[in-house]
Amino acid sequence: MFRLLIQELKFRLNTTLWWSVGLSFLPLVYIGIYPSVAEEMANLADLEIYRAMGMNLGTFPDWVGSILVIFLPLVAAIYAILNGTGTLAGEEEDGRLEMLVTLPLARWQIVTAKALALSLSILTILLIVSLGSMGVMTSIQDQIDTDLTGIELFTAVLSTYPLVFSMAMLSIFLASFCANRRFASLIAAAVLAVSYFGSNLAESTKVLEPFEPFFLFTYVDASGKAVVEGQQTGDLLVLMITGVVAFLLSLVFFQRRRLTVGMWPWQRSKVPR
């Protein structure tokens, strides 16, 4: 399995680097421009539309929380979905998975290697973006009025990892469960969108309150306070456990999957009478 993991990491090397570079533009632009918009943003702190989007732009930590802690995992989750569904369902559709499963590898090893590779790839991306954020902040530190340190910013950005990890594992699970990649991607994207809007709207709409625990973004605190003090351990654990459960389910479903046939799990084959 270690050999496959190394191979999967090699496959993802370029993508990981490109996504890291691409996502690093987010802190580069949004932290970089903060000194020039700080005053203006402070006046928009209480706008309802921003609240609905989970945004509060009053102070620098609020700005970081609203832009980076919310949008960064949202965009990174797109990578997780593309890669997570592509790695099993995508390879099954284009035929490469057949070559892989006919090698002397157990199915659980294939899923585990791919899941580990994706998890490490996401961690690398977020580490690079976190370092980038810290670097940008250091360069503008003298232009902004904040107690937030570079290390705190680094930790705040990196703490978005559990959310992206859970989306990645959910995508791998959907790839092992759904009949094809299209369905897997659609469902994963829907989960992401509903989680994002659901958790934000649940704060202002009572109808959604009962569903709040099911929205993954509920477990990400994008407030300035959380940027300074860090995410709650319980929330991080919920997201990590969600990811681990999704991974375990993917092991079960991939083991039972009739590869190359493109069937849902309930379409059990029966011999015609």
Binding site: R3, G95, R96, P104
Partner: peptide, 26 residues
């Protein structure tokens, strides 16, 4: 095994593919 519908890693060079295959097979 040689499958009828052969799908390969298009971005790899052939020697890289063989080395990978050799590596994965043990």
């Amino acid at each position: 095994y040689l499958p009828g519908e052969l799908a390969l890693y298009a971005n790899m060079r052939a020697h890289e593919f063989f080395k990978m295959y050799e590596y994965l097979r043990g």
